[in-house]
Amino acid sequence: MNILIYLIPIALLLGLLGLAAFAWSLKSGQYDDLEGAAQRILMDDDDVSEPEDVR
């Protein structure tokens, strides 16, 4: 059972990484326009420039 001492913290750390990624994506506004994201799939080409800092 000693293996749990390593495995549980590792599992938690990985989970926390995922959570941090989610928090970052939320903060950078990726959930602000869910409808638009769904529509953008249909665009043909990728020449539209993506602004880095449009809040």
Binding site: G36, S49, E50, E52
Partner: peptide, 15 residues
């Protein structure tokens, strides 16, 4: 975005 001085364009479809 084809305009020379434009650096960023983003249309929010929801709002």
């Amino acid at each position: 975005s084809q305009q020379p001085d434009i650096r960023g364009v983003r249309l929010n479809f929801s709002t």
